[in-house]
Amino acid sequence: MLEIEDLHVSVQDKNILKGLSLTVPAGEVHAIMGPNGAGKSTTSYTLAGREGYEVTSGAIRFKGEDFVDLPPEERAAKGMFLAFQSPIEIPGVTSMNFLKTAVNAQARSRGEKEPTAVEFLKMLREAAKKLNVTEDMLRRPLNVGFSGGEKKRNEVLQMTLLKPSLAVLDETDSGLDIDALRLVAEGVNALRCPERSFLVITHYQRLLDYIEPDVVHILAGGRIVKSGDKTLARQLEDQGYDAVIGQAA
């Protein structure tokens, strides 16, 4: 699904990613864990195609296709989804209107038929109900005045409707209490299937108790320094980054 090969990325002329390599096969859940400053957010923004994140060398291939030069909207239409660490508030755009615009734009980009208003509403109501997103929340401006948990549920709702092939979750656990975290994780787990991969980026092991990864990678100094199964996350939690990264180096 996703292959990252010897990726070097600089932001404002500062090298952040220095040879990141990673492969996420279809249907798998991979976690990237790393200390502050390791390049976690840079990885997610680079995958989503944010301006200012300059790929100086290396490759990103998505479903075998070179991804580096594509704008964010084309990556999205091809099945890439980034769940934001701090979801954006957009006053003046209702959640419902935004979701419909996004679903239609992706359908158009893929040459598919846009869902009718009735089809869309049915799809939206079903997904919203499961995530405990109320009709009122859908009618309000996107994320404006929402709690941390509500915002993250909104992100999962977007993911549910847009049906990506690869979802990158950027520190989705940040700012969530246990109940909110559980609800968000259940939403994500419901989307797990053999055609869909996840890249879960997190600082803490906690999220991985709820979203169980197939592979855990440790990112430090802009590259993957160690990979293992889910027990690696536990080991990090017990021993700390310094000890584990120290062994790897």
Binding site: G49, E73, A76, P87, I88, I90, V93, A102, L162
Partner: peptide, 19 residues
């Protein structure tokens, strides 16, 4: 953010102006 959801840049800009 809007572009990561698949909304083309021009449409996203117009959406923000309307908003």
């Amino acid at each position: 953010f809007l572009r990561t959801r698949g909304i083309p840049e021009e449409e996203a800009r117009a959406m923000l102006v309307e908003a």
